[in-house]
Amino acid sequence: MGKARKAMSWIAGGIQVTLGALAAVVAFLIHTNASLQETLAISFQEVYLYMLLLLVFGTFSIISGLLLVHRENNGN
């Protein structure tokens, strides 16, 4: 049970960190890439709102993923 739980924590934590990093990259691309803004039908006024949402999501995901892995490794 303990090993399975550890493996699941590593997988879930790893995916969360990856998704968080991807969200941060997408936020950066939305800010800099006009054609992506057009593809996603994001108006100029909405760019910063989308960036904020993605960056908050990304930050949370990275920290949540790291905490999950850290907890399983240290058992606290």
Binding site: R5, M8, S9, A12, G13, I15, Q16, L19, S64, G65, L67, L68, R71, G75, N76
Partner: peptide, 18 residues
């Protein structure tokens, strides 16, 4: 995202505090 975060949430709240 829905599946992974559900799993992460369960893992977060189910382990007992040591």
């Amino acid at each position: 995202v829905s599946i992974v975060y559900l799993g992460a949430g369960l893992l977060n709240i189910t382990k007992k505090h040591e």
